[in-house]
Design a protein around this nucleic acid. Sequence first.
DNA 1: AACGCTTATTCAAACGTTTGAATCAAGTGA
DNA 2: TCACTTGATTCAAACGTTTGAATAAGCGTT
Lengths: 377, 377
Amino acid sequence: MPQRKSGHVTLLDVAQASGFSVSTVSIVLSDAPLARRVSAKTREQIRTMAQTLGYHPDAHARSLRRRSTQTIGVLAFDLSDPYCIPIMRGIQAGLQSADYLPLVMDAQTQRKLFDHYLTLLLERRVEGLIVIASWVFEETDLLADIRKNKVPIIIIGRDLTARGIPSILVDNEAGGALAMHHLRSLGHRHIAVIRGPQEMSDSAPRWAGIQKVTARSRAALDPELVLQLPGLADALSGFHDACRMVKQLLARDRPFSAVLAFDDLTALGVIRGLSEAGLRVPLDCSVMGFDDVLPAEVSTPAITTIRQPLHAMGVQAATQMLQCLNSTASPSARKATLLKSHPELVVRESTQRLRVEHGRNKRPAPGHGTATFQESN
Amino acid sequence: MPQRKSGHVTLLDVAQASGFSVSTVSIVLSDAPLARRVSAKTREQIRTMAQTLGYHPDAHARSLRRRSTQTIGVLAFDLSDPYCIPIMRGIQAGLQSADYLPLVMDAQTQRKLFDHYLTLLLERRVEGLIVIASWVFEETDLLADIRKNKVPIIIIGRDLTARGIPSILVDNEAGGALAMHHLRSLGHRHIAVIRGPQEMSDSAPRWAGIQKVTARSRAALDPELVLQLPGLADALSGFHDACRMVKQLLARDRPFSAVLAFDDLTALGVIRGLSEAGLRVPLDCSVMGFDDVLPAEVSTPAITTIRQPLHAMGVQAATQMLQCLNSTASPSARKATLLKSHPELVVRESTQRLRVEHGRNKRPAPGHGTATFQESN
DNA sequence: AACGCTTATTCAAACGTTTGAATCAAGTGA
DNA sequence: TCACTTGATTCAAACGTTTGAATAAGCGTT
């Protein structure tokens, strides 16, 4: 019973129990190159002894000695946001083959926590850092520390190349354009837009894309039909805000046959709001989302949306990180690249072709109560 | 510029740069009790030097020396399942005050990965292990290793007290009963049930609860209206299966006015299937879910469901773990407790009172096509 | 008999911390 | 001058690994 007071089975335990030195045991169990020089019988003995004792090497001791942790920190701004999950999965998938382990932390949209976990990851000596944050993440002084300790960093969801950080994000402007184009091509002309919150970096380019398409068609958006989400607290706040805002919109008595929402949760909120006002989607009003997260796929009607290749973006981040770690190029010499992935229109059930009414082009304002203002099939 | 070749700033660096010994620096920066004996001036010097160098203690070296990692492993069977997120948050919240760090791993419903991460967590010397797995997780031999290394373990989502593992889970039987009772109290008598997959431990007790309520009312379920989900591959498979199955159900030409689904994603699938068959929820058919995950809340109609107090369960797991770590009681002496949390009915929009038809009690079979078989308001 | 070569194993130092014990200077009382 | 305390700092060993260098034994060659 060679269990030591310290709870865990160690190399020394296995050594004593098997009658060999710590070195030999280490060589065998970690099969180092020298393991080939160890006799087969010895190897076998050591292995089975380790097995029966339940030995597992101490990762900390090992990292310390090897000066490598085979670990990449993944700091997500909000894991409860379905947006993060596929990215994380992508990272996981990308790192797997290289035997790197992602250490994922969830900042829960709290800046304090964000910094806290950043520190912890630094202390755990992650060899690289992938940050998922469409969110703020401005100068957190820790950024300087990360630099000083030469930990490479990649950000997903924002363009921070200006700060020298390689960035991966979807081409939001193209996405916004795609969305608007889809609605227009379905014949919609009176389109309400719910813009993203000010402090979110995705908001501006998406809006730009929307405007560009509108302008190109020599059309114009009714400013009365454009609203902006207030700041976002958590994954659900956009939903509730949108639900409220769409009712404001209806109250304005301006006709609209479609709503272009900032993201999927917002779209879901819009649908809820419309539904509570007695309107049906897409019969009475089309609704578009953005991102293509799980709730958009499983709700009925399924949300037509602009898909971000989130999984792929995660994989890209991972491979780019690995590549950076393997390259011997000077640490800061490489310049921060910007990787814009292509958004993709996913047509589902929440949008449909505008049905023109008999002769008239101007539709009545969406009803208070249950009046529909668009003919259904 | 006392940067060392190894990339990271170390205690020695700070020591040399500030002109004190490694010991002193360590004492100051980790403010050990002896720090009170260090002159204020020295403390200040060391602190600022550490600051400017961007020093962060090496968690591995520290853990090695202190023989404690302040770390709890959290192994989730599938992080893309919205079910896991609130639990994880709860654990995080529960550990925070005690300065324990959750190391979360995502097994992606793959047994191989599960074992892999279990090993890694063991190697990282987590001081405790919380497993989230309504899923299988039977004897993984690693369980034996966990025992040998005396790592306390708690499982959320299954009753494994029989194997000596403290378990936390919702009272599924009560939940099933609650759901069935809700539907019956709304007047529904022809209720279809989509049971959970065989290999999921939640399935049986929920079914039992359903049956118990049915029996108590001297009613019976039509076996033709009871279907069982096949095995589950990922978070979405239940959705798609349910969508398919509900159409089978409709094809059987047995009247039903409500569907009791195994969980929320299943319910969402049911709604999709009904919708594709031209039926509206809850107008033509009520649908109930179970769990209360995010998609259930944001889809329209919002899903009436049985809420699991997931966050609270996470907190409980954390506090129970901490308590176990602090107690000096003999490692295996404490016996595995079972903690059943109370499910709660959340009435939303996907269920409604059964509208009796004029005189007749027997409803026509749900239509092929768009025929409704239940009068709407 | 000395040398080199191979094979199987062990020594010992190092990784970056922490911490009980040691050091050392300065001050105090005898 | 000595012993003795107090305060500030440092020594050195240890945590569990890994690994370049060393050892030791066996064996064939000159």
